[in-house]
Amino acid sequence: MKLPESLFSRSVLAYLPLMAYAFDPPRACQTALLITAVSWISLLFFWFTRRFFPERFLKEAFFLWLLVWGQIVWTLAELEPLWLLSVFFLTPLSFMEKEKRASRARVFSKEVLRYFWERAVAGFGFILFVLIVTGAQKGLEFGGRGISFQQPAVLFLLIAVLASFWKNQPFRR
Protein backbone atom coordinates (compact mmCIF):
# COMPACT_ATOMS: atom_id res chain seq x y z
CA MET A 1 0.00 0.00 0.00
CA LYS A 2 1.38 3.40 -0.93
CA LEU A 3 0.60 6.11 1.56
CA PRO A 4 0.53 9.74 0.43
CA GLU A 5 3.69 11.79 0.91
CA SER A 6 1.73 14.56 2.59
CA LEU A 7 0.77 12.22 5.45
CA PHE A 8 4.35 12.07 6.73
CA SER A 9 4.94 15.79 6.23
CA ARG A 10 1.72 16.58 8.07
CA SER A 11 2.69 14.30 10.97
CA VAL A 12 6.20 15.77 11.26
CA LEU A 13 4.93 19.34 11.06
CA ALA A 14 2.29 18.64 13.72
CA TYR A 15 4.89 16.90 15.90
CA LEU A 16 7.42 19.76 15.79
CA PRO A 17 5.51 22.07 18.17
CA LEU A 18 5.09 19.07 20.45
CA MET A 19 8.88 18.73 20.61
CA ALA A 20 8.88 21.53 23.15
CA TYR A 21 7.04 19.17 25.54
CA ALA A 22 9.05 16.13 24.47
CA PHE A 23 11.23 16.03 27.56
CA ASP A 24 8.20 14.48 29.26
CA PRO A 25 7.04 11.52 27.09
CA PRO A 26 3.74 10.72 28.92
CA ARG A 27 2.72 14.36 28.66
CA ALA A 28 3.66 14.40 24.98
CA CYS A 29 1.38 11.38 24.33
CA GLN A 30 -1.52 12.95 26.25
CA THR A 31 -1.03 16.18 24.32
CA ALA A 32 -0.98 14.27 21.01
CA LEU A 33 -4.36 12.72 21.86
CA LEU A 34 -5.72 16.12 22.82
CA ILE A 35 -4.43 17.68 19.57
CA THR A 36 -6.02 14.97 17.43
CA ALA A 37 -9.34 15.18 19.28
CA VAL A 38 -9.48 18.98 18.99
CA SER A 39 -8.56 18.86 15.29
CA TRP A 40 -11.34 16.35 14.56
CA ILE A 41 -13.89 18.32 16.63
CA SER A 42 -12.85 21.55 14.87
CA LEU A 43 -13.19 19.95 11.46
CA LEU A 44 -16.61 18.49 12.26
CA PHE A 45 -17.84 21.75 13.75
CA PHE A 46 -16.65 24.00 10.93
CA TRP A 47 -17.55 21.66 8.08
CA PHE A 48 -21.21 21.58 9.12
CA THR A 49 -21.55 25.16 10.33
CA ARG A 50 -19.35 27.06 7.85
CA ARG A 51 -22.41 28.31 5.89
CA PHE A 52 -23.68 30.11 8.99
CA PHE A 53 -20.61 32.31 9.28
CA PRO A 54 -20.07 35.37 7.09
CA GLU A 55 -17.40 34.40 4.58
CA ARG A 56 -15.10 37.23 5.63
CA PHE A 57 -15.02 36.14 9.24
CA LEU A 58 -14.79 32.36 8.84
CA LYS A 59 -11.04 32.21 9.34
CA GLU A 60 -11.27 34.65 12.25
CA ALA A 61 -13.94 32.43 13.82
CA PHE A 62 -11.62 29.44 13.45
CA PHE A 63 -8.75 31.23 15.20
CA LEU A 64 -11.07 32.41 17.96
CA TRP A 65 -12.30 28.84 18.35
CA LEU A 66 -8.69 27.66 18.74
CA LEU A 67 -7.98 30.40 21.27
CA VAL A 68 -10.99 29.34 23.34
CA TRP A 69 -9.66 25.76 23.30
CA GLY A 70 -6.24 27.05 24.30
CA GLN A 71 -7.79 28.95 27.20
CA ILE A 72 -9.83 25.94 28.36
CA VAL A 73 -6.79 23.63 28.33
CA TRP A 74 -4.65 26.30 29.98
CA THR A 75 -7.22 26.67 32.78
CA LEU A 76 -7.64 22.92 33.29
CA ALA A 77 -4.12 21.59 32.67
CA GLU A 78 -1.83 24.65 32.52
CA LEU A 79 -0.56 23.54 29.12
CA GLU A 80 1.15 26.31 27.13
CA PRO A 81 -0.80 27.06 23.93
CA LEU A 82 1.90 25.87 21.52
CA TRP A 83 -0.18 22.75 20.86
CA LEU A 84 -2.65 24.97 18.94
CA LEU A 85 -0.10 25.10 16.13
CA SER A 86 -0.24 21.30 15.82
CA VAL A 87 -4.04 21.51 15.55
CA PHE A 88 -3.58 24.13 12.87
CA PHE A 89 -1.29 21.78 10.90
CA LEU A 90 -3.69 18.87 11.23
CA THR A 91 -6.78 20.87 10.27
CA PRO A 92 -6.33 22.23 6.76
CA LEU A 93 -8.30 25.38 6.12
CA SER A 94 -8.85 24.51 2.45
CA PHE A 95 -12.58 23.96 2.93
CA MET A 96 -12.84 27.56 4.17
CA GLU A 97 -11.07 29.14 1.20
CA LYS A 98 -13.31 30.14 -1.65
CA GLU A 99 -10.97 29.21 -4.49
CA LYS A 100 -10.29 25.66 -3.21
CA ARG A 101 -12.27 22.65 -4.47
CA ALA A 102 -13.16 21.43 -0.97
CA SER A 103 -14.95 24.69 -0.19
CA ARG A 104 -17.33 24.18 -3.13
CA ALA A 105 -18.40 20.72 -1.91
CA ARG A 106 -21.88 20.61 -0.44
CA VAL A 107 -22.13 20.24 3.32
CA PHE A 108 -23.83 16.85 3.00
CA SER A 109 -22.28 15.08 0.03
CA LYS A 110 -20.10 12.12 -0.95
CA GLU A 111 -17.11 14.42 -0.75
CA VAL A 112 -17.58 14.49 3.02
CA LEU A 113 -16.70 10.81 3.45
CA ARG A 114 -13.48 11.07 1.46
CA TYR A 115 -12.49 14.30 3.13
CA PHE A 116 -13.16 13.01 6.65
CA TRP A 117 -11.40 9.73 5.93
CA GLU A 118 -8.25 11.64 4.92
CA ARG A 119 -8.40 13.72 8.09
CA ALA A 120 -8.98 10.62 10.23
CA VAL A 121 -5.93 8.93 8.67
CA ALA A 122 -3.88 12.10 9.27
CA GLY A 123 -4.93 12.08 12.93
CA PHE A 124 -4.08 8.40 13.43
CA GLY A 125 -0.82 8.89 11.52
CA PHE A 126 0.12 11.73 13.82
CA ILE A 127 -0.64 9.67 16.96
CA LEU A 128 1.37 6.77 15.54
CA PHE A 129 4.28 9.06 14.75
CA VAL A 130 4.26 10.47 18.31
CA LEU A 131 4.12 6.93 19.74
CA ILE A 132 7.05 5.80 17.58
CA VAL A 133 9.19 8.82 18.51
CA THR A 134 8.26 8.56 22.19
CA GLY A 135 8.89 4.80 22.18
CA ALA A 136 12.29 5.25 20.54
CA GLN A 137 13.05 8.03 22.99
CA LYS A 138 12.20 5.82 26.00
CA GLY A 139 14.13 2.91 24.50
CA LEU A 140 17.29 4.92 23.81
CA GLU A 141 17.30 6.56 27.23
CA PHE A 142 17.89 3.18 28.98
CA GLY A 143 16.42 4.50 32.20
CA GLY A 144 18.63 7.58 32.26
CA ARG A 145 21.86 5.73 31.35
CA GLY A 146 21.58 6.14 27.58
CA ILE A 147 21.07 9.13 25.29
CA SER A 148 19.69 12.29 26.89
CA PHE A 149 16.70 13.75 25.08
CA GLN A 150 16.86 17.12 26.82
CA GLN A 151 18.48 18.33 23.58
CA PRO A 152 16.21 19.03 20.58
CA ALA A 153 19.16 18.03 18.37
CA VAL A 154 18.77 14.37 19.39
CA LEU A 155 15.08 14.46 18.51
CA PHE A 156 15.89 16.02 15.14
CA LEU A 157 18.36 13.22 14.47
CA LEU A 158 15.70 10.66 15.42
CA ILE A 159 13.19 12.31 13.07
CA ALA A 160 15.86 12.38 10.33
CA VAL A 161 16.28 8.60 10.70
CA LEU A 162 12.49 8.04 10.61
CA ALA A 163 12.15 10.35 7.60
CA SER A 164 14.89 8.44 5.84
CA PHE A 165 13.09 5.13 6.51
CA TRP A 166 9.84 6.63 5.23
CA LYS A 167 11.43 8.04 2.10
CA ASN A 168 13.17 4.76 1.25
CA GLN A 169 10.38 2.35 2.12
CA PRO A 170 10.20 -0.68 -0.22
CA PHE A 171 6.59 0.11 -1.24
CA ARG A 172 7.75 3.26 -2.98
CA ARG A 173 10.23 1.56 -5.28
Binding site: V12, Q151, A153, F156, L157, I159, A160, K167
Partner: peptide, 21 residues
Protein backbone atom coordinates in the same frame (compact mmCIF):
# COMPACT_ATOMS: atom_id res chain seq x y z
CA UNK B 1 18.53 11.28 -3.42
CA UNK B 2 17.55 9.02 -0.44
CA UNK B 3 18.22 11.78 2.09
CA UNK B 4 16.78 14.74 0.19
CA UNK B 5 13.83 16.51 1.80
CA UNK B 6 12.93 15.90 5.44
CA UNK B 7 16.01 13.79 6.36
CA UNK B 8 18.50 16.45 5.31
CA UNK B 9 16.35 19.26 6.77
CA UNK B 10 16.27 17.49 10.15
CA UNK B 11 20.02 16.81 10.03
CA UNK B 12 20.71 20.48 9.35
CA UNK B 13 18.33 21.48 12.17
CA UNK B 14 20.13 19.10 14.54
CA UNK B 15 23.54 20.58 13.67
CA UNK B 16 22.36 24.17 14.02
CA UNK B 17 20.60 23.45 17.30
CA UNK B 18 23.77 21.79 18.63
CA UNK B 19 25.76 24.86 17.67
CA UNK B 20 23.23 27.14 19.36
CA UNK B 21 23.24 24.96 22.47
Amino acid sequence: EPVKGWPVFCLLAAFVSLALW
